[in-house]
Simulated assay, not measured.
Amino acid sequence: MRSSRLTLALDGALAALPERGDILILRPRGPEEIVPLPNARLRVVQGFRPEHDALAARGYRCFASAAEEEALPPPVAALVCLPRSKAEARALLYHAARRVVPGGPVWVDGQKTDGIDSVLRDLRGHVTLTETVSKAHGKLFGFAAAADALPAVWQASERQVEGGFVTLPGVFSADGPDAASVMLAAALPDKLNGEVVDLGAGWGYLSRAGLSRNGVRKLHLVEAEAAALASARVNVTDPRAMFHWADATTFRLPRGVDHVLCNPPFHQSREADPGLGLAFLRASARLLAPHGTLWLVANRHLPYDRPLSELFRDCAEIGSDTRFRLTRASRPHRP
């Protein structure tokens, strides 16, 4: 999709690509999206660990955050791969407009389902846009970089939410604790003796609740999204916390832990993907010691009963409401 629009753009529909200098790519969803661009000149910022690793494996220079990339000289051009979060999209556009050398092209690309038309309308009030390439249910257009091109309120900044937590644009549940995590936090027992993993920790709401229980020696926050983990480092300051930027479905520790807290995602895109949640369940069983316990919250409609019974010897529903169900699963089976 994106690659087909890029090919048309490079054939002359948009501003010509500068002959020298690095090109900044913000938040591509995979190597196939940026194939038409010259690999050796690209700096790719992708904070989602599985996609970051896939890009690095293809030889791209990858950075977990825009701040990490800023140690290098300014790029001569940028491509913003539009995310679904409007706040994150604006933050990426603001960064690109200030980061690229003045007058250099900033391209913006996204699907209609990403809100590309809304972003296009927003930008028209601030910059002069180049010709638009429309193809494959999406659009690509550009504008000239300038430090003062876009409103300062678009820049990425921490937001304080309920409970004194901070979040960043684009992270899951950026407006405050999600209802499922609140439900699980309230259901945790008074004691969580031993070592704990918060699998898919987000910005740290469940981890802080876990650390408030008696008996916790150590708690591992495992989160694939770098921006969410950066917020978690601010929100969870307990010295027993350990932070891991990692794909939760493949994360491993040297030995089994006593408890796993889990509010697994079930969307890869706009469509539900129960397979993603199942991968979290399998990872939970793998991480636990033979006596360990999984504390799980999930949407009621998700088909987790049978997989849980196959992964654990003991499973029990410990609470529910009209949307979510709480499960305690213990004593994982070993292959």
Rank of each mutant, 00 (worst) to 15 (best):
V161N: 03
V80W: 13
K112S: 06
A185L: 05
R98K: 14
L42G: 07
A89Q: 08
R306Q: 14
R124C: 02
V44C: 05
R43E: 05
G210E: 06
A187L: 03
A9C: 03
R286V: 08
A298N: 11
N299C: 06
M242D: 10
G163D: 03
S173T: 06
H126W: 15
L311I: 12
M242F: 09
L123C: 09
P50N: 09
L93V: 06
R325H: 05
L221D: 04
R20D: 14
S309C: 10
A201H: 09
P105W: 12
G170F: 04
G292H: 11
V197M: 05
R328L: 06
V108D: 08
A87N: 03
F141R: 02
R58W: 05
R2G: 01
A78G: 04
A298Q: 13
K135Q: 10
N263V: 11
N193K: 11
A146K: 05
R84W: 04
G210V: 06
S173Q: 02
G170T: 02
L129C: 03
V196K: 10
L55K: 11
A147M: 07
R300V: 10
R306Y: 06
A187V: 03
T237Q: 15
V35H: 08
L287W: 10
D148I: 00
A152G: 01
C262A: 11
I318F: 01
D273M: 10
S3P: 00
E317V: 15
D238K: 04
F266I: 08
P38M: 14
V161S: 04
S3C: 01
A232L: 11
G125P: 00
R124W: 02
A136F: 00
A224E: 10
A180Q: 04
A241N: 07
E32M: 00
T7P: 00
G163Q: 00
Q46H: 07
V45H: 08
L308A: 07
G164S: 02
E310F: 04
A13L: 06
L311K: 11
R240C: 03
T167N: 05
R99C: 04
D198Y: 07
L168S: 07
A272W: 03
H244V: 02
R233C: 05
H52I: 03
R328D: 01
G21P: 02
G210L: 06
A201V: 09
P332Q: 14
P74D: 15
E310Y: 08
L14Y: 04
P28F: 10
R58E: 14
A209P: 00
L221W: 10
V171G: 00
V166S: 00
C62R: 08
S85N: 10
R98T: 13
E70M: 13
Y60I: 09
T113Q: 13
